[in-house]
Design a protein around this nucleic acid. Structure first.
Length: 308
DNA sequence: AATCGGTTCAACCGCAGTTTA
DNA sequence: TTAAACTGCGGTTGAACCGAT
């Protein structure tokens, strides 16, 4: 994340003045004529070399402005029009996982730009979540239910586990379920779920930033290689695709071909894995995030003590 | 018809990471 | 090795738009 506090600080490097402030450089809304010049030039010569593009194309704009205009408006692949409900749903899901990583989110929504999604989030979705009592930044409740003493212990996860998340061991089913009631989130069903697991395991449960934790832990294990790269990129891509298509099984099946983490029960018997848990439950992003986090744990083997 | 306040979204700003010389 | 140039990103701004009065 960028250091916002430095935003207003004096420029540390010999940062040039904003390119658009140069004398003779036009600013503000683009005219249809300018659009045509830019589009025709890029069709002919391709994207890139933005700094010198305006001069080559004969535009009185800075390179940044040209790039932005092309990326957000002129590109043929840019989809115009209202955000569809399914796109909105997808934005919400991805934002819960990725935060304000607009370009990453946009990369998963064909035809939509990061700027468009960012605007839509700021003008529609953040307000929508606030009206539902959800903090749009953290996706956690703005006003946790003060009547539930249990909730205090599990507050970090209550917003994320909207669906049941079963784990099986020794024939028992451990389940935590959260539902929304009267604009508040409450944990409503903790049947057979050992308090010890809730209390002590909360740090290992899927918090809203569980996905980030997954990335981080994976990265820490693979310091030599960039996480977003080679086969990991495929995994990441597949994972996000599974969210988009809600086809968890495709993701699961792929993962089963890889070395899958095993959760070992207290007496040594295998417990249901996180991805199997997803199979059992109706999917939530937090669960998938937890699953992803699990892939970063201890050479692919999870011990139940990690959860307890 | 005029004004006002809220909303939208294209465009700009400044920073950080990457590439190049 | 290092500094400059380039590129891409997220935050912010402000003009245009729209509905209410």
């Amino acid at each position: 994340m960028r250091n916002l506090s430095s935003r207003n600080s004096t420029r540390s490097r010999n940062t040039p003045t904003p390119c658009c402030s140069k004398v003779g450089i036009k600013r503000g809304p683009w005219t249809p004529e300018e659009d045509e010049i830019l589009a025709n030039y890029i069709k002919k010569d391709g994207e890139g070399r933005w700094r010198t593009l305006p001069k080559r194309a004969g535009l009185l704009r800075c390179g940044k402005s040209c790039r932005l205009r092309w990326m957000n408006y002129l590109r043929p692949s840019v989809k115009r029009g209202r955000i569809a409900p399914d796109e909105e749903d997808l934005i919400l899901r991805l934002h819960r996982l990725l935060g304000n990583r607009w370009s990453l989110i946009a990369g998963r929504i064909p035809g939509r730009t990061d700027n468009e999604i960012k605007n839509y989030w700021n003008t529609h979705l953040s307000k929508k979540l606030i009206s539902q009592g959800i903090d749009p930044r953290t996706h956690k409740p703005l006003y946790p239910n003060p009547n539930s003493s249990e909730i205090a212990n599990i507050a970090p996860i209550q917003n994320c586990i909207l669906n049941s998340f079963p784990l099986e061991a020794n024939g028992g089913v451990y389940r935590a379920t959260a539902t929304r009631e009267n604009e508040n989130f409450t944990m409503t069903n903790l049947d057979q779920f050992p308090n010890q697991v809730i209390d002590d395991g909360a740090k290992n449960w899927p918090s809203c930033d569980g996905f980030n934790k997954g990335l981080q832990s994976h990265h820490e294990q693979n310091k030599e290689e960039d996480y977003i790269g080679n086969e990991n990129e495929d995994t990441f891509s597949l994972f996000l695709d599974s969210l988009i298509n809600e086809n968890v099984f495709a993701y699961q099946q792929q993962q089963q071909q890889l070395q899958q983490p095993k959760i070992i029960g207290p007496s040594g018997e295998p417990m249901i894995s996180s991805s199997q848990a997803i199979h059992h439950s109706s999917i939530s992003e937090a669960e998938v995030a937890y699953s992803m986090a699990a892939f970063g744990e201890k050479d692919g083997v999870l011990n139940s003590h990690d959860l307890a």
